[in-house]
């Protein structure tokens, strides 16, 4: 299935769709095709981190991969390919969504079920989403120095009520040091690392 892999890396949606259909015709199991799609995106993440691929290319690859996934997913009989569920959002008072969207997209590409709560999300809304979706991980984004304080409170509230949930944080002003100081379980400096971090925390 090298051709699927190559098409994902090139961000060629038509190619991926054709490739997936061909693989199915050749009798390859849907689960195997999904693995291939996810592995292709993992390579995209690696290249992005190394500076060999750039954000627009990653977006194109993710889009192509998603189209491929749409074809195969309905064919899975009862099996669940999901790595786990992640609830994600930008904290209250903060309207930035570019970084958070990028992270959500790469988490999805890594095989996670992502529930994106959007921007300006108060702690209560995170709590309600946790109750409803029972995620393994919650991801919080903050892009303003003022909303870092909100992030701290939101993380505190989540950990207090759901001690088994892993909370990860990110955003331009956020650092590992800050993440540690507010007792978050993980920090990622960029979107590709966020996907790696989530995988590490799940396993």
């Amino acid at each position: 299935m090298d051709y699927i892999y190559a098409y994902v890396l090139e961000g060629d949606t038509e190619g991926v769709v054709k490739g997936v259909k061909r693989a199915l015709q050749d009798g390859i199991e849907p689960a195997v095709i999904i693995d291939c799609l996810i592995n292709s995106m993992a390579e995209v993440g690696v290249r992005m981190k190394n500076g060999d691929m750039f954000v627009p290319e990653v977006l194109a690859s993710a889009e192509a991969m998603k189209e491929g996934l749409q074809i195969v997913k309905p064919l899975l009989s009862g099996e669940n390919y999901s790595q786990g569920k992640i609830v994600i959002g930008t904290v209250a008072g903060d309207l930035h969504d570019i970084g958070k969207n990028l992270v959500a997209m790469l988490l999805e590409s890594a095989g996670f079920d992502v529930v994106d709560l959007g921007i300006d999300v108060p702690a209560e809304k995170f709590m309600a989403a946790i109750e409803e979706h029972q995620p393994a991980i919650v991801g919080l984004s903050a892009l303003l120095t003022t909303t870092m304080e909100t992030m701290k409170k939101t993380v505190g509230a989540i950990i207090a009520r759901y001690p088994s949930i892993r909370v990860i944080v990110g955003g331009a002003p956020v650092s590992q040091e800050f993440a540690d100081s507010i007792n978050a379980h993980g920090y990622a400096p960029d979107a590709a690392s966020a996907a790696d971090l989530a995988k590490r925390l799940i396993n």
Partner: peptide, 8 residues
């Protein structure tokens, strides 16, 4: 000012 990488 927002990035052209995520929205051209």
């Amino acid at each position: 000012i927002q990035p052209i990488s995520t929205d051209s």
